[in-house]
């Protein structure tokens, strides 16, 4: 088995585990649980992308992964913020910490 083959196999494996994690998005029960699953999905997706790209020697894939990492980070934060403060208008905000 050559290295590219192995990398592809690893990509399949990571994708499969990530897919398994989707069960948690389905089941919840709390927002945080779905969130974690989504976070795992993002990281796993990026890992699979890197593995795929290096295996097929597609250099541009690194750029794609970079952009994905930047935006996934932001999306996760936006999600947590939106989920934990649903009525998100800071005019009614009361800081309770």
């Amino acid at each position: 088995m050559t290295i590219p083959d192995l990398l592809l196999a690893a990509a399949v494996f990571v994708l499969a585990t990530v897919a398994l994690g989707m069960v948690r998005i389905l089941r919840g029960p709390a927002a945080a649980d779905r969130m974690m699953a989504a976070q795992l999905f993002g990281t796993g997706g990026i890992a699979a992308l890197l593995l795929l790209g290096v295996a097929t020697e597609a250099n541009a894939v690194l750029d794609v992964a970079l952009v994905l990492a930047l935006l996934a980070a932001f999306a996760s934060v936006a999600f947590v913020q939106g989920a934990s403060h649903p009525d998100g208008d800071d005019s009614k905000e009361t800081h309770s910490e």
Binding site: A30, A32, F74, V80
Partner: peptide, 29 residues
């Protein structure tokens, strides 16, 4: 390495926010 750092950093931030949400028992989605 930049990809890893970004993901690591985002994950850290997000997990802190999530932990807080979990502790406060945020609204079930």
């Amino acid at each position: 390495i930049a990809i890893w750092l970004i993901v690591l950093f985002a994950a850290t931030t997000v997990s802190q926010l999530m932990a807080r949400a979990a502790r406060d028992g945020g609204p079930p989605v």
